[in-house]
Each structure stands twice: as structure tokens, then as C-alpha cells.
Design a binder for these strands. Structure first.
Lengths: 260, 260
DNA sequence: TCGCGTTCGTACGAATCCGTACTATGTCCG
DNA sequence: CGGACATAGTACGGATTCGTACGAACGCGA
């Protein structure tokens, strides 16, 4: 429940060994169960969580009472993102979506490591930028793409984070994440199952055909994935972040629009 | 066209005079016209723009060819946000939505000032966090709220940024921003006009009744505004960021959900 | 093994929004 | 003054999603 961290978070594992002394001994693993509230909005932000094999959802609560997922973080990042801006309070609530373990760091240690600069600071800030990019992509996605597309996208994204094509999930839960009816998810999932892309069995899902599922998913899966992977790439001295949404066509369109 | 900066951007104007020497002489004003492409995705990120009386839209281009606004920045911030993560390339295209002037800083100067720490670094990073919060709110907003609500929200947000209840705007343009049909905007705007909240006259809009318009707008206007204002508050030594979306109720709901 | 709660399949009218198209009215400019 | 273009109003069938509701099937625990 409180063992020392021994690897598993992709961001932390990118930090050179020589640099890890900054948080040596200050990183412990903890277990989270489904629906555990890991971070509560408006309360003091005192710990930073680096998922190992669990997934956290950042959610927005609307006045209607509906909760919608506005972000997802697995072993490729950390929560909450606002810790990089020295916010004393958490801005949003975050809860465990897929159970598992995570590395937990005191906020003070995090800030010390951030101030020390180095690879840690670079990766943390890049991850925060990636989070913004992803959130923006989902903003557009929710406006444009249908339930089936978004459902497929969500399954692929979750698969990548949990690291397995096979994980527990109910329609009810996925409906809350996508911000749609439970019945809507049943229809979309039924469609994907008929195609042979997934298989559902009472609270458990298996992705069985990647190509089919990717084909049904919207472009947002690839776009967000590319930026996320690029943000974790620390082999070359200067990374190249690729925007899969095609800026060249964008510019052409804008200029055309302007001259019209 | 290239005069020295003399104030007008709320973020820059929060920097203590003693600290401004870092970018003294390196800040020039430039004018932007409607639809000017200020930043192009996938191209080198070489300058940072601090709007004075213009507004920029960050847009996502989808494969369908549709462009959707995923962020808006006026005199309360800067573009592009990804500059804080040392990204060599811009992640998204940004163009001028309301014409006016802006302060422009070389990226190298920006990074020097950021590395110097102080108020500048704090405000810039807080602003980036606020941008993420706002983007997340819009993610939920686009899923949940109708065209009329989002239309009212957009008008209020733009009013705050442009600093006037009266600005040029066409239905066509607003439709692109909201990611809906042009005819849909005409209907929504007609509704708001019948209520007496706004007045439209061929490419020009006037907000004439704040209370009515706020009443029609969704909660997202207030929520994003609160965080944005808090991020610019530099009077107390430790700011208190307020989340208007009500975390207390959130937690209660989560715990209830869990125990159920 | 049986009962009960969770989870899932399905149905149907209503509401919203879309795609498209056509018309009307300002506004600019020759 | 008049044509041309940009902008806005309106209409209509269709697609998607919603809200709600009911019943079936699976699985855990008594």
C-alpha cells in the first residue's frame, strides 16, 4: 500500500537515474479502487499522482448534475495538471476509473523537483501542454463526431493507458464518460460488436480487432496520441511534435478564406 | 505598426515595473486584421503575442474540413500557450477574430523572462493552467448545452475580452466559432434579440441587456471567467482560485455514487 | 439452488440540430 | 442610381440523440 516506487509510470521512467535523487525516497505507491476520489476540486492540492497501471478521469460537474469526463490520465502523465502553476487549490475533481497502483509524491517535493529544472521539469511542462492540446481536440470532437466514433476513440485511448485490450467497463460508466445516455452506449457498443471490433460481456470489454476499431474511431484518437507520444519522447535533444490535424491544409484554407 | 509597448495587456501590466527590464525594448506592438493567421500549426514557434485590444481564436481543423474554435485569447493572456513547454513547433493555428493591436515578443526573450522566474513566470504559468481549465469546461459545454446557451456564452466572453458591448460579428463567423450551422446562429441570435438581450444589425452586434443575456448563457461563462480573473490576481501573496462549478456538490455526488 | 440486484437490450415519441436551398435586405461601389 | 455582393431570414425533410421506460439475462450471495 505504501511501497517505494519501482517504475511503471512512463513519465517518471524517462527521468535519468542521476536526476532522480531529487525525489528519492519521497515517492510511494498507493492503490486506487474504482470511483476513488483522488483529487477534490476546491480543496488544497497537496499531492501529485503518477499512475502506474490505473487510470484517472478528470471530470466537470455541471449545474444540471451531470458529470462529464474532460480529461483522462494514465501511466503517461500525472494529475492534477494545475500543480505546475502553483495553484494552492485543485481546480477539478479527479477519480479512479480503472483500478490499480500509482506513485504518489508530496506537492512540496514536486515543486522542488520542478524548480530544479532538468528533464523532470521539461517532461512535466510538455505533458501539461499535451493535456491542453488533447482537451482542445476533445472540445472539437464532442461537437463534430457521433457517439460511435467517440465511443471507439475512448476505448482505444483507454486501452493504450491501461496497457491491455481487455478491461472492466460498464455501459453506464462509459455513458457518464462520454456525456451521453446509457442506452446510447449500448447501441454504439452493439454496433461495434456486430462489426467484430469488440466483445462485451457484462461489465467487461475486450478489443479484438484494432484495425476495425480504429476505422470506426474518429481522427481525434490519432491526433491526441501523436502529441502525447511526442511529449514523452526524450531521446533526441530537440523533439519534434507532430500535429496530426494537418496544419498545412489549415493555412491554405485560412488564406483562401481571407482572400475570398 | 512597430511602436514600443505602452500597456494594455492585462497580464503584462501585472508585472512589477522593476521586473520589466527583462524584456525592455524587446516588446513591440503590431496590428492584426480579421482572419490574419497569427500562428500556424506545425511551423516554428518564434514569437509570443500578447493581445491589447484584439482577440485571437485557437482553432482545430478536422478531417471533414470543418474548423472549430477550441480557445479564445484576448488582453487577459497570450498565444500560443505551448510556448511554456518549449515546444519548437506551434501545435495549433491561431488567427485574429477581432482586429486590433497586440504586443509581440520574440520567443527567445519570452523564454529568458520565464527562466528568470518572478511574477512573469507565475502569471504565465497560471494563465496556461487557466487555459486548460477553460478548454475542459468547453469540452463539457459542447456536450451538454444548446446553441442558444453557447451563443450567449460566447458573446459574453467576447465582450469581456474586447472590452466593449459592441463589436463587429457576422452569423457566418459565429457559426464557425461555435461549430454549428450558420442558420442555427440566425435562429439563436433571433431568439436572443426577441428577448431584448442583444441587437443585431448586419455584421454588427450590441449587447444591450447583461442580465437577460447572462440568464440565457450557460454556467460555463461564469465558471471560466472566475478562473481567468483569479489567474490574473496578483495582489495577495497567495491567490485563491475559485472553481465556480461547485466541487463540494461534486464530492458529495461521488461519495454517494460510490456508496450506492 | 434460488432470489435479487446489476447490467444490458430494446422501444418510441419528442426535441434538437443538420443539410440544403431559396429569398430578402443591407451595403458597397461603379 | 443601380448592379453586385455580402449578410441575414426562413423553410423542410432527415438524421441523431434524448428522455424514459420496460423487460431480459447474467452473476453474486444467502
Amino acid at each position: 500500500m505504501s511501497d517505494a516506487y519501482e517504475g511503471g509510470n512512463r513519465l517518471l521512467d524517462c527521468i535519468p537515474l542521476a536526476e532522480r535523487s531529487v525525489f528519492e525516497g519521497a515517492l510511494h505507491t498507493a492503490s486506487f479502487a474504482v470511483r476513488d476520489l483522488a483529487i477534490t476540486a476546491d480543496e488544497p492540492l497537496c499531492r501529485v499522482i503518477f499512475p502506474i497501471d490505473c487510470i484517472f478521469s478528470i471530470v466537470a460537474l455541471l449545474q444540471s448534475g451531470a458529470t462529464t469526463e474532460v480529461g483522462t490520465v494514465g501511466r503517461e502523465g500525472f494529475v492534477p495538471a494545475e500543480v505546475v502553476s502553483s495553484s494552492p487549490l485543485a481546480l477539478r475533481s479527479t477519480f479512479c476509473q480503472v483500478p490499480g497502483r500509482a506513485a504518489v509524491m508530496e506537492r512540496t517535493v514536486f515543486e522542488r523537483a520542478l524548480a530544479a529544472g532538468g528533464t523532470f521539469a521539461v517532461l512535466v511542462r510538455r505533458n501539461a501542454s499535451a493535456r491542453l492540446f488533447i482537451s482542445e481536440q476533445l472540445t472539437a470532437c464532442n461537437l463534430t463526431h457521433g457517439i460511435v466514433q467517440r465511443c471507439a476513440r475512448w476505448l482505444l485511448m483507454t486501452r493504450d493507458r491501461v496497457g491491455s485490450p481487455d478491461f472492466p467497463l460498464t455501459h453506464e460508466f462509459l455513458a457518464m464518460m462520454l456525456g451521453v445516455r446509457r442506452a446510447g452506449v449500448t447501441e454504439a457498443a452493439g454496433h461495434l460488436q456486430q462489426l467484430g471490433a469488440i466483445r462485451y460481456r457484462r461489465g467487461h470489454i475486450s478489443l479484438i480487432d484494432d484495425a476495425l476499431l480504429t476505422d470506426q474511431a474518429c481522427e481525434c484518437y490519432g491526433a491526441t496520441n501523436a502529441v502525447l507520444e511526442a511529449s514523452l519522447d526524450c531521446t533526441p535533444p530537440r523533439e519534434t511534435v507532430v500535429d496530426a490535424s494537418g496544419a498545412a491544409g489549415m493555412m491554405a484554407r485560412m488564406i483562401e478564406h481571407r482572400n475570398a
